[in-house]
Design a protein around this nucleic acid. Sequence first.
DNA 1: CAGTGGTCTAGACCACGCG
DNA 2: GCGTGGTCTAGACCACTGT
Lengths: 246, 246
Amino acid sequence: MQNVPSRHHDIADDIRRQITTGRIKPGERLPSESGLAGQYKVSTATLRSALAMLQGEGLVEKIHGKGNFVRHRLRKIMYVGGWGTLDPWTAAEAALRVTDRATAIEAHGHLAGLLRVPNGSPLTEFVSVSYEGDSPHSLARIYVPRDLERTKALGDGLSYMRTEKSFAVLSPLSAEVRETVSARPPTPDEASTLRINPTTAVLAITRVAADTAGRVVEAALLVFPGDRVDAVFTTHHVINERQTQG
Amino acid sequence: MQNVPSRHHDIADDIRRQITTGRIKPGERLPSESGLAGQYKVSTATLRSALAMLQGEGLVEKIHGKGNFVRHRLRKIMYVGGWGTLDPWTAAEAALRVTDRATAIEAHGHLAGLLRVPNGSPLTEFVSVSYEGDSPHSLARIYVPRDLERTKALGDGLSYMRTEKSFAVLSPLSAEVRETVSARPPTPDEASTLRINPTTAVLAITRVAADTAGRVVEAALLVFPGDRVDAVFTTHHVINERQTQG
DNA sequence: CAGTGGTCTAGACCACGCG
DNA sequence: GCGTGGTCTAGACCACTGT
């Protein structure tokens, strides 16, 4: 439990203090890595490992060829679990842009298991990346069994999603939503799509929605940069007649 | 979206393949870092960054002075959100040991905000670390306003927790539980308590339970190693008379 | 082009675990 | 003491961004 002070740790503390006390302001660029290495009298490798800590904390954003910048806001964006449909984003929708893509694919191993359909079953895959300002802040891959797609006025799933502009569960028929949340490093794909460092953890949510008959109507793989997004889940206790619903 | 193959990335891929194909089995030790560096004809720094990727993925555990070991099981442990009381752990309780500590403290800034009590209010803090086999797999810090402690047959919160052996919400009076989940690097304290690398992300859950009057009866800060624990949240849709409750 | 971060080397020295 | 991983150095060379 004791601390073994290491040089890169000390340097990270020092820079962190300068950021949190406002000595260096959001949006500002830090001195170059070689410059800082000179200031602190360490090698560039050591200095870089100090910056890596701050990156992991989301305080600093590195941009290749440009420099290290102090991040603006921290943990402002929220993913709301369950029927988050009821507008987590509406307030922020003005600044929100979504890029969508729908593809016909077949269920394979893992996906088939999640959706509880036989291997090779036809699915529709919706991929969407949403942005907040310049930077991407979510990657969603949603899978719906092809034969369920028309259950609702969902003929064109794409436009449906565009309208909602959220990670709404596609089918309002679902009776139960199960969300599994994990913290893990991004895949190379996710890292480049979300434009985050491979060392920055992501918040990965696997959401499976089932209807009253227990049939899975949708599986979603949602990925958020861990340094900018939190997920919120609210559970209401049902007390006698008093029934609540989020 | 293109891949720029880097040496450490290639090496990580190669070792990962050897692990996932069973070429190197769980519990086994990898060759020493200098040995591997020799095999792959790279410097130790490069090899170490390859191992760092595998560590982040939870495939490999480094032990200072001993070596790099292949992890046994992956993502088997689950934290269950809401009223997880209803036994996430019972099955695993045999192998479970919990270390508890209760302390009288005062609410300060952040904590006071969570509990919605004035700064300086008396609280009881429960700290518990739970193990699975040799390795710790959770750190829980639970805060209860002192004047609420006796509301229930909770005179001795400590033994209460020991009985439950879970992260049960302490007071059954709570009507709403709100859990905020984030993926972030561990604090130095958390890293050493959970015996994880500072680069391995943790799944951090802040749980606030309120009673029917909206009064906060408990705040909990739960931290899990991201490479071994997932959190599961289930939301039931209330449909007419048919009301569900987890 | 100049300036920035990204990867890598070939070492040195320190801290930990174990016999 | 010996072998392990942990930190660090003082460079080299490559890749990206701007002018």
